[in-house]
């Protein structure tokens, strides 16, 4: 079942890639078509997906895969935090999102010391800010809605 699903997902990816390659305008005289490599690669991927489906049809069932649903939910939670965290840089700059996300992620990985979690609210954004935005001189992302760094600097 899993092999079928993998093959089907690859077929969908290759069809999207084929369609995308087909959108590339044709070549001007004396030049090569810009879509030739994406088109060929997508076609090769489609072929491989077919091979995977064929292989899956010849496999005998070996029982159901045991999935740890709790672990999957934890992963999904962490991925959602990652998505929100990267988006919140645009809204609130670097410091505030990091101060909120650091203790949450530490808690998810099993840190239960309240003092440690409280310290991470200050230490994590401070240390990363000093290393990357002060020592390395990278310009920090500016928060469009509210920027803690801007507020601290007055």
């Amino acid at each position: 079942m899993r092999a079928y699903a993998e093959g089907l997902v690859l077929i969908v990816i290759s069809l999207v890639a084929l369609w995308g390659a087909w959108q590339v305008p044709g070549a001007t005289p004396g030049d090569t078509w810009a879509g030739i490599v994406p088109f060929s690669a997508s076609l090769a991927l489609l072929l491989l997906s077919g091979v995977m489906i064929l292989g899956a049809s010849q496999q005998t069932a070996t029982g159901e895969d045991k999935t740890d649903h709790a672990a999957t939910f934890e992963f999904i939670g962490l991925f959602l935090i990652a998505l929100i965290y990267q988006q919140s840089f645009r809204w609130f700059g670097y410091l505030l999102p990091t101060a909120i996300v650091a203790p949450i992620v530490l808690y998810m990985f099993g840190v239960r010391s309240w003092i440690g979690l409280a310290l991470s609210v200050v230490i994590c954004p401070l240390v990363f800010h000093v290393i990357f935005f002060e020592l390395l001189g990278v310009f920090p992302p500016f928060g469009e809605v509210f920027d803690l760094l801007d507020w601290i600097k007055g």
């Binding site: 962490l78 990652a82 965290y85 990267q86 988006q87 840089f89 645009r90 670097y94 990091t98 996300v101 650091a102 992620v105 530490l106 998810m108 990985f109 099993g110 840190v111 994590c124 990363f128 990357f132 390395l136 990278v138 310009f139 992302p141």
Partner: peptide, 27 residues
């Protein structure tokens, strides 16, 4: 390891931003 991996998680975001100062890179 329960401290190490969260720190690596946070570093991944700031490191990918620092490469070109681009939020798109973080996405």
């Amino acid at each position: 390891t329960n401290v190490l991996y969260p720190l690596i998680f946070l570093t991944a975001f700031v490191a990918s931003y620092s490469a070109r100062g681009s939020m798109f890179d973080v996405t």
